[in-house]
Structures are given as C-alpha cells and as structure tokens.
C-alpha cells in the first residue's frame, strides 16, 4: 500500500466522521474534560507533596504529556482497527479486508484511522510546552533531537502495544480486558520508574518497552536517575520504537496467517 493510498483511506475516514460533526466535537470536549481531570489529580498530588522521588511537578508533567501525546498518535493509527478486530473476526467482516489486493494491516489501519484524538493532542501538547519551558532542561541539538525522536518512537511503541493486543483477538477473542490492562500499564510510565519494583521496571523496559516513550528520554533531558537500568539506555529510544513496531507488525501478520489456517 502506497502512502498516497493510505492517505486516501484516512481522508475518507475523516470525511465520514465529519458527517456527524456535532457528536464528534462534543466527543473531543468530553475526552478533553476526562484528561483534564486526570491532570488535575496529579497536580493536586504534587501540590500537596511537592515531589515524587525527586521529580517536581513540571517534570512529572513532562512524563504525563509524553505518555498522552505518544498514546494519542499511536492510538490514532491502531486503536480502532485493533479493538474492532475481535468483532470483525466474529462477524466475518475481516474477510472483506482479505479479498483486497493490499496489505491487510495497512488497509485496516487506513479504513479505521481514528481522528478522535485531537483533544489528547491539544491537551498533551499544551502541557508539554509548559513542562519543557519550566523544567530544568539543557537545550542542545542532541536533547532537541532526543525529544523529537521520543515523540515519534514513543508513538510507534504505543501503536505496537495495541497491535499486539489486537493480535490476541485472532486466537482468544475478548481482548477488551487486555486493552483495559494496557490503560493501567500506561499509568506506570507517568511516574518516575524507579519507584516501582524491579519486576515492573524489567517488564516495561525489556518486554513491553513503554518506558522508552516517556521515562528514559525524560530522565536524560532533566538529568535525573534512580532506576534499575543505566541512564544511557534512553539514547536507544529512536531505535526501540521502529524495532518494536516491526515485531508487532510481524506478529500481527502471523496472526492473520493463523486465522487463515484455522478459519477463526
């Protein structure tokens, strides 16, 4: 599937959503309020206790905004196709994708690209702008590069996690709880990872490398540490995203093969 064809899918999807403009905008507003409440709780927490493991509010805000921003970008691509996959397998609508002469992964993502993450982007973008302006960051070409790479790579990590969960639907269906668990796991990476035990740190670094979307690069930017792994691994962030996304894509494709073999 060429980028132009993918973009054609996304444009149609956008126009489809615009058919229900009112509901769409209200949805953005409602989600915005939801995330604002989350930010408010963390702010209240820091307001009362000043710091968590030495991380002050602007620094925690950086973690939070990175987590929401990368999730929003990643989920725009893979959330809808992967959550709907379960139903598509059950109802057989996945077959309409499989009779197309295009890559099923990209066809599905294109068809179901979710443009509803605008309020996430706005909110996370605003918080992040404030956070990087306030937090003690030494701006060098390297740190700027790292931040940009973190947004891109982190989004891929988030998209990849959702893809892996979606793959589950091929075999076991009922992936809903797993998506909820992923929501829970995302809360780990909104705090300094060092406060969690060894097992969560290993899992979030080596198994589901979500910590590369927020903590490791942020720790380099603000020169903090206190985690199990050495601080320099944050520089691996630009590589982790593409590699993990590739793994997820391959796993998903194998899931499709298995589906074709077993017949659902």
């Amino acid at each position: 599937m060429t980028p132009a064809l993918f973009w054609h899918h996304v444009r149609l999807r956008l126009r489809e959503r615009m058919e229900y403009r009112g509901a769409f905008l209200l949805g953005l507003l409602a989600q915005g309020i939801g995330y604002a409440a989350e930010i408010a709780v963390i702010w209240l927490l820091l307001h009362r206790f000043e710091a968590i493991a030495g991380w002050m509010w602007p620094e925690i805000a950086l973690l939070y905004s990175l987590s929401v921003l990368t999730y929003a970008i990643g989920a725009a691509f893979t959330y809808s196709p992967m959550t709907e996959l379960e139903q598509m397998v059950q109802r057989g609508t996945l077959e309409t994708v499989l009779v197309k002469p295009t890559d099923p992964f990209w066809t599905l993502i294109g068809q179901r690209f979710n443009v509803g993450y605008l309020s996430h982007l706005l909110l996370a973008g605003t918080v992040m702008t404030w956070a990087i302006a306030t937090a003690p960051i030494d701006w060098t070409p390297a740190s700027v590069g790292l931040l940009v790479a973190t947004v891109a790579s982190g989004s891929m990590i988030q998209a990849a996690v959702l893809t892996l969960i979606g793959t589950w639907a091929f075999r076991f269906t009922r992936s809903w709880t797993l998506f909820a668990i992923n929501g829970q796991a995302s809360r780990f990476i909104r705090f300094p990872i060092g406060i969690f035990g060894i097992i969560p740190q290993i899992l979030l670094t080596l198994v589901i490398p979500l910590a590369f979307a927020t903590y490791y690069p942020a720790a380099i930017l603000i020169s903090e540490d206190g985690q199990l792994f050495p601080g320099w691994i944050g520089w691996l962030t630009p590589v982790v995203g593409p590699v993990f996304m590739w793994v997820a894509y391959r796993t998903w494709t194998r899931g499709i093969d298995r589906y074709q073999g077993a017949g659902g």
Binding site: R15, E16, E19, R91, T93, T96, P101
Partner: peptide
C-alpha cells in the same frame, strides 16, 4: 493479493462500501 486483484467478491451480508459516504467515494477508493 495477486489473486485478489483478478477476482471480484460480493458478500450478501457484509458491505464493502463506506457506510457514511456517497457511494462514488467507495468507487474512487
């Protein structure tokens, strides 16, 4: 995929058209 480009498939109970858009949009895609 090679096979797919040379065959046409219609499912009576599964639509391949974009539900909320004019038919012509699905044709163009």
């Amino acid at each position: 995929r090679r096979n797919a480009s040379r065959i046409g498939v219609v499912f009576g109970q599964r639509s391949q058209l974009w539900w909320d858009l004019p038919v012509i949009e699905s044709f163009e895609l």
